[in-house]
Structures are given as structure tokens and as C-alpha cells.
Nucleic acid binder design. Sequence first.
DNA 1: CGCTAGAGATTGTTGAACAATCCCACAAGG
DNA 2: CCTTGTGGGATTGTTCAACAATCTCTAGCG
Lengths: 229, 229
Amino acid sequence: MAQNEVALLEALEQERSLLGRSSTAERVAALLREQIMAGAIPPSTRLSEDAISRALGVSRNTLREAFRLLAHERLLVHELNRGVFVRQLTPEDLSDLFQVRRLVELGALRGVRAVAPERLVALRAALDEARQCAADGRWMDVGTANMRFHLAIAALAGSPRVGELMEHVLAELRLVFLVMPDPRRFHEPYVERNAEICRLLEAGEVNEAHDALVRYLDDAERELLRAVT
Amino acid sequence: MAQNEVALLEALEQERSLLGRSSTAERVAALLREQIMAGAIPPSTRLSEDAISRALGVSRNTLREAFRLLAHERLLVHELNRGVFVRQLTPEDLSDLFQVRRLVELGALRGVRAVAPERLVALRAALDEARQCAADGRWMDVGTANMRFHLAIAALAGSPRVGELMEHVLAELRLVFLVMPDPRRFHEPYVERNAEICRLLEAGEVNEAHDALVRYLDDAERELLRAVT
DNA sequence: CGCTAGAGATTGTTGAACAATCCCACAAGG
DNA sequence: CCTTGTGGGATTGTTCAACAATCTCTAGCG
């Protein structure tokens, strides 16, 4: 009986995250985040406190809390007495973001000397989805799946803080994806390059995967830089 | 005349950061941050909105904005309907923080194939200050200087975002420093280990510096873990 | 043409109010 | 004795209205 109880409690423990309630401010932030990441609110637009609080039916105070959250994620920039704006990435921002990606992704890869096969399922899953989306012609979703692939690479570090950092970095990068003229031409080629990285990892050839990832990041940065300048 | 004007404008440009005004919430956050990092408010204390807003002469709303800021830096944890608490680091937190440090610091070191000598002045400066503090017996300040040394290492990556990340990581780590029983015994030995790393870098022996840093991080983590458990 | 002043709009901050939730002590029941 | 309701009191979550501080833009001035 005691053993059953322990097992039950442990099961509940694992689902605890599901009942993680959230404040209004957090839900507002989530909503705005979605809109921004979907491109509904293009970069450099100013977000009026008055208009949005009225539209969402929340008080200005609550909305401002939501703004703070998104500003910390760098999706919004807050200028004192001027308001909040959807961030517009500069070329410097872009290089910086890729610098972070290099540190995180390459570091994560180097950390896993012995490639634990069960930790690659997330990579494989993201890859499969990217291919499915490509087959359906949903090129924006291909970009999303690609991002999840690299999020999974960062997750190999096994660190919650690194995971969250990577999420924010990719969210920021998505701001440039939105203004790319031809999503297919940009996203499609990277699917097979990710596949190659995944294959190398599954084969245990970590060093080769590392080098392939270096080339991937270099190429992606160069191509995005060309798009924003 | 035009040249003088340009020079003047450039000089002002550099000081612009100084006049970066700040909102009340940010100033309140800075004040609380200082108190926490100095150990005046020990981990796991609950911060009462009513008491603190009254004490600082700001409204509850403004104080709550400050709380949000510090919660995002992970100095405070926010529990819905229960309030905010000064974070108490768990052993898992500690390991995670060192995982991030490994990624960032080692990655930064690997990034600088060619060691630019003028970029090492910040390292040398932090080191000198650590030694000065040690000579004065101000052991807590020795810890601060040591942290700045490693902040300078992270800065070798040349990325603003990495720099800010590292600042937050070190601020969190300081929460453990505060509860260490014997500051001298803990901080003093690391000064010369940092000196060794600095020496190796200045000699251009990046690989050796890298290995020394690995040992440094391993030892520091082990010792801190023993202190919190 | 450039500069200044001022009106109008927007953000920053406050204080009070009420709802929702939590904490704790105490009683009821097995 | 231990567990399970049930209150009251305190704290947080959220809203609202108001005012101060600051920015933006335009019209008018030299």
C-alpha cells in the first residue's frame, strides 16, 4: 500500500507543471507574443497602452506588466516616456544572436562526448515534422520546426537555464524570418542540412556533426545578414 | 571648426550611457538588488508588498514592476498569490549555473584563437583589484573581484547578450557566497588560480588556459555544492 | 530656413478600492 | 490521534481614475 501511494504521488508530481496557473499579465504577454511571432504586429510598431488595454479588456497596469515581460525577452524594446515597440533587429543584433547560438549549440554538442541515443529522439522528431511541413508546402512551419531542431540541440546540455536562453534567442531570430521575402527559398535547404547533422549524431560522429553545425550557422548568419541590410 | 564639432559630438556620444535615465521601478529594483547581493535580505525571505512600498515611499504598483524585473533576473521567485521571495539556490540550481558558466566561459576562450592583448586589460584589472582586496582583508570584495574576472572572460566573446547573461548568472551565484561560513577560506585560493589563467592567456597559451579554467570551474562547483547540502 | 513656444497626446506614478487567494487556528468527526 | 471542513484575517491580483512628467507636432516668429 505504501508503495502504491509513493508511486501515485510521484506521478502527480510530474504533472504538477500542468496546473501551473498564470496571472492575467502572463496570459496577456503570451497572447501578444503569439501575435508578434506570427507577424501580425510587424517590427518597429509602437504598442499603445491605451488602445491595447482597451482592446484586451485589461487595465493599463496589467498590460504594462505584460510589456515588461516581453521587453525582458527582447521581443519589445521599452523607451522611457515613448512607449514600447516591437524590436527591429539590427545587423549587430543578428551577429550577436548567432554568436550566442555558436556558444550554446556548439558547446552543447561538445558536452556530449558519449551520444546518448535516447536523447536524440527530440532531434529526430523535429526533423520529421520539418519534412512533413515541407511536403505540405507550409514553409513558415518548416522554419518553426527547424528552430525546434536547434532547440533540441541546445537541450543536449541538459540545463534548464540554457534551454530558456535558447528559446529567447530563437524567438528573437524569428523576427527576421518574418520579413524574409521568400520563405521557401530560405527554409527549405536547411532541412536536409539538419538531417545530415542528426545522422552524424546518431552515428556517434560528434566531431563531424560539430563541424557541420559550424558551417550551418555560418551560412545561416550570412544569408540572414544579407536579408536585413 | 567642423572637426571640433565632430570631436565634441563623439565625446558626448560616449557619455550617453550615463544620462540613460531610469524609471522609478528600475531604481527601486536596483536598490533591492543591492540589498540582496549584500546579504541584507537573506534567501527565502518573503518580501511584503505593503511593508516595502511603504518603506520606500513608492506605490504598490511600482514596487510590483520592480519585483518583476528582479524575478526575471532570478534573484526573486514569484509564487502566485503568495508573494515574492529571495531565491534560495538548490543544488540543482547550482549545477545548472556552472553548466552555463562552462558553456559561456570555455566557449568564449575557444572563440579567441588569436589572443588580442588589449582585450586582456580587463582581466588584469580585475585580478589586481582582487589582490588589493585580499591584502586589505576584505574577503567579500575579493569574491566580487573574482566574479568580475570571470565576467571579463565571458566578455572575450564580444557579445552584449552573453555579457548580460553572465552578469545574471554571477548575481545568482552570489546568493550562495552570502551563506558561506568562512569567506576567506573560500575566496582566497581562487585569486592565484585566476592569476594563473591570466598569465597563460597573456602568454598566448590558450589551450592551457582553457584546461586551467575547466579545473577551476570543477573545483568551485564541488566546493559550493558541499556548502549548500 | 531654422528655431521656439505651446497645445495635445502618451506614458509614468500614485492611491484607493474590491475580488481572489492563501494561511492559520479551531472545531467536528472517524 | 489524525484527518477533514470551516471560518476569519491577512496578502496578493487587478481595476480604475487622477495627476505629473515627458514627448510630438504644428504654427508662428525672427
